[in-house]
Amino acid sequence: MTNRYEELLARAAADETVLGVILSGSRARGAATEHSDFDVYVVVGERDGAWRTSRTPELDTIVMSPADIADVSDEWQRYSYRGARVLLDRLDGHIAELVRRQATLSPAETDAWVREYLDGYLNFAYRAAKSRRDGRPEAADLDERESVAWFLWTLFALYGRVRPYNKFLRWELDTHPLPAPWTADHLIATLTERPSALLPELERAVRAKGFSDVIDEWDLSLLR
């Protein structure tokens, strides 16, 4: 497996049409196991067929243009650039800047994402509370579980960051800690056991960051 990866790097370095090479995933983040593959973005100016996207159990090669990396509209994909390593940059740092841009939120994005995902989280939390009140525990549990994704998008957006994939949640919190109380142990254990228990802490963080107006649109008496 390592040989295929090294062969890919050598081929890219020898090909002047390759503008950049980016290593992503577990290998880039120092979180690889014996089963981890290599996730590599090969950046080219023109998709002329010399380089093709391919995926194998050992090596994923994704061919992209600078315009592809500059497109930040795919919110879920953006975390793949978090902790990514730029191995080759023939654009004098532009590839590295595009990677950084993907992995962080602008102030405008932070505002929009917090508002969207916080509203979604409160919606699911409210539905769960109503179902629990009305004697429908299964529906309540399903809504509470569904709220977790919205909670994580909200929490990380509050701090200008994209939501990590669940696989990397602990790595993210251990390597790039959030302010108290959002330690990896506390957050993961509570999200796993009873996500709604985090609402008071999230509310305090949201209000401190200036998003009280989103919270105040909801009657949270039932949740409290």
Results as ranks from 00 to 15, higher is better:
residue 1 M to G: 02
residue 5 Y to V: 01
residue 5 Y to T: 00
residue 9 L to A: 01
residue 10 A to H: 04
residue 17 T to Q: 11
residue 25 G to E: 13
residue 26 S to C: 14
residue 28 A to V: 02
residue 30 G to V: 03
residue 30 G to L: 03
residue 31 A to R: 09
residue 32 A to V: 00
residue 33 T to R: 08
residue 34 E to K: 06
residue 35 H to C: 02
residue 38 F to G: 08
residue 38 F to K: 05
residue 39 D to I: 00
residue 40 V to I: 08
residue 42 V to C: 09
residue 43 V to Y: 02
residue 58 E to Q: 00
residue 58 E to S: 12
residue 61 T to C: 15
residue 65 S to R: 12
residue 66 P to M: 01
residue 66 P to D: 05
residue 70 A to N: 05
residue 70 A to M: 05
residue 72 V to M: 10
residue 75 E to D: 05
residue 77 Q to D: 11
residue 81 Y to A: 11
residue 85 R to I: 04
residue 87 L to D: 14
residue 91 L to Q: 13
residue 98 L to N: 00
residue 98 L to D: 03
residue 101 R to K: 11
residue 101 R to S: 04
residue 102 Q to E: 15
residue 102 Q to G: 08
residue 102 Q to K: 08
residue 103 A to F: 06
residue 104 T to W: 15
residue 114 V to P: 06
residue 118 L to C: 06
residue 119 D to W: 04
residue 123 N to H: 01
residue 124 F to N: 06
residue 128 A to N: 08
residue 130 K to M: 15
residue 133 R to G: 08
residue 134 D to P: 06
residue 136 R to G: 00
residue 140 A to F: 06
residue 141 D to Y: 03
residue 144 E to N: 08
residue 157 A to L: 07
residue 161 R to A: 05
residue 162 V to G: 02
residue 162 V to I: 04
residue 164 P to W: 03
residue 165 Y to E: 05
residue 166 N to C: 12
residue 171 W to D: 10
residue 172 E to R: 15
residue 174 D to F: 01
residue 181 P to M: 08
residue 186 H to T: 13
residue 186 H to S: 13
residue 187 L to H: 12
residue 188 I to F: 10
residue 188 I to S: 12
residue 188 I to P: 15
residue 188 I to C: 12
residue 188 I to G: 13
residue 194 R to Y: 12
residue 196 S to V: 09
residue 196 S to R: 15
residue 203 E to F: 02
residue 210 G to N: 00
residue 213 D to T: 02
residue 219 D to V: 03
residue 223 L to E: 05
residue 224 R to K: 12
